[in-house]
Simulated assay, not measured.
Amino acid sequence: MSLPKTLAEDVARNLVMVARLIDEDPEQAYAYSRIALRLASRVAAVREAAGFAAYATQKYSEALAEFRAAKRMTGSVELWPVMADCERGLGRPERALAMAGEAEVRKLDKAGQVEMRLVAAGARRDMGQLDAAIVTLQSSELASNAVHAWTPRLRYAYADALLAAGREDEAREWFGKALEADKDGVTDASDRLAELDGVEFVDAFVEDESDEGTADDERAARTEREDTGEETREDTGEDRPSEA
């Protein structure tokens, strides 16, 4: 609303493209975010979108700068967890842990607090503190039977931490719980369970293509022999026993 109409429309088009492409083509989404940033760098939504596009392309320093700018403009703390995760991406897990203890976390909604817990557990793992990571994830949200948008990822992270600590039976149980809650397929819990159970998947399509290629090769070889008159005994029937 703070921009002239034509400029606002141009910025909006670029932001729409960022949203559409950020999962399937993050580099292209990043390119669109840079255009929006050039057009309207003083708009918080543009700085936030630029931050997520940079984050998706692992440009963590740039992402952190954009998220900080958006936070200054809006006064909102909702970006706090992803800002902490940028610190992890920059190889500074201790800073991410420090952010997990700041007052901003208490201002987050439930989803934001769970996200912060996931980031903090990841930071513990970055530092080789597996047991601490497991304890960090243990919470009322993890113990609850209620399913929310963040439930599959929380259960999955807990299962993964247990597995990393060598607690395979518990990990299998929690991968199963993650799968039960994961109606939208946001995790690969089913694959992890299969891996733990020693199940191997065969790509039937690739196998069929291989078989078809072999048949094609055999047909081509037979045609070449026929064209050159070099038929095998099997082809001509030579040396076959005659019928009595």
Score class of each variant (00 low, 15 high):
V105P: 05
R155L: 10
D109T: 09
F67W: 03
S76L: 12
A103L: 09
L90A: 09
L118E: 04
L137R: 01
S144D: 13
A149E: 13
G89V: 06
P152W: 01
R155Y: 02
S76E: 15
A70P: 03
L137F: 05
A103T: 11
A63Y: 02
K107E: 14
H148C: 06
R125P: 05
E94T: 12
G128M: 08
G128S: 12
A84Q: 04
V77H: 04
P152Y: 03
L118A: 11
Q129R: 15
A133Q: 05
A70V: 04
L64C: 05
G75L: 12
E102C: 08
P93W: 00
R92I: 01
S61V: 11
F67K: 00
T136H: 01
M127A: 14
V82I: 15
L130E: 13
R153A: 14
V77C: 05
L97R: 02
E104R: 07
W150N: 06
E115G: 04
A98L: 10
Q138W: 01
R155K: 13
D109S: 11
E94D: 15
G89L: 04
N145F: 05
G112D: 06
L154T: 09
D85W: 00
A121V: 04
W150M: 11
G91F: 05
T151N: 08
R155P: 06
D131R: 13
A146L: 12
A146T: 14
S144V: 06
A111I: 07
Q129G: 08
D131F: 04
S144M: 08
A69N: 07
G91Y: 03
R153C: 08
G101Q: 07
A149M: 09
V147T: 15
K71I: 07
A63L: 12
R88G: 03
D131A: 15
